[in-house]
Amino acid sequence: MLKDITLGQYFPGNSPLHKLDPRMKLILALLFIVTVFFADSLVSVAIMALASFIFVPLGRIPLKTVLRSLKAIRWIILFTSVLNLFWVKTGTQLVDFYFIDIYSGGITYAITMALRVTALLVGSTLLLSYTTSPIALTDGLEQMLSPLKKLHVPVHEFAMMMTIALRFIPTLIEETDKIIAAQKARGADFETGSVFSRAKAMIPIFIPLFVSAIRRADELATAMECRCYHGGDGRTRMTSLRYTPRDFVALGLFLLFMAGIIGMRWLPLPAFLGM
């Protein structure tokens, strides 16, 4: 039952997006997010939201999957939009019903907000989680942050911790499934009873799970020591990250796009499209 949860949904592939250097993708994602917040008119946000879907064919990710992830956060989108709908009081008043006042500015802002969240989610997940393996992502982060090593920040160790944590998510999910089945076989009941008794019924799951997580950590530490692992100093990689012309082309295109979006701030737009 827990297997249905998809975490770090990486789609292995060989698309142009997959081939970008993970560091470049991190930079692009950051720039993308910044641009989304710079885009302040309905038109520019709408362009951003549409643009974020360009990554769907570029990364050869099934559109269905992307829409499903949007569906998962539809309540967040709806909530932020509706909140803005009642809060923003600019433009002409359209509805005046007791305490409910809706202004034209509120409607524009609500739509802008929904599009902005959509653009943020689609853009960043497509650039990062769908098309970059968690390992590549942590590798990229480690290399980008490596200048911090000069300040004695244990960058490599943090990256290693992240890699290990990501690696063990599926293992622990599988383990949880097994433990639940085993305790159910002994008549454990997780489905009926008050909230309190249901919480108590979790003890037979959590204790074995923690015990096994600690045991695994211990075994992994031993195995790493057996292979003479001693942290980041002097460690080389089998595949070192290297920027290719492709990365700079992507960056150049993206900067152009960003300039265009920001430039739209000075375009004379009709009032209902602006803010």
């Binding site: 383990e175 037979p204 096994s212």
Partner: peptide
């Protein structure tokens, strides 16, 4: 189950 000792709590 297999390896039932991992379910002791």
């Amino acid at each position: 189950f297999q390896y039932p000792e991992y379910q002791l709590f």
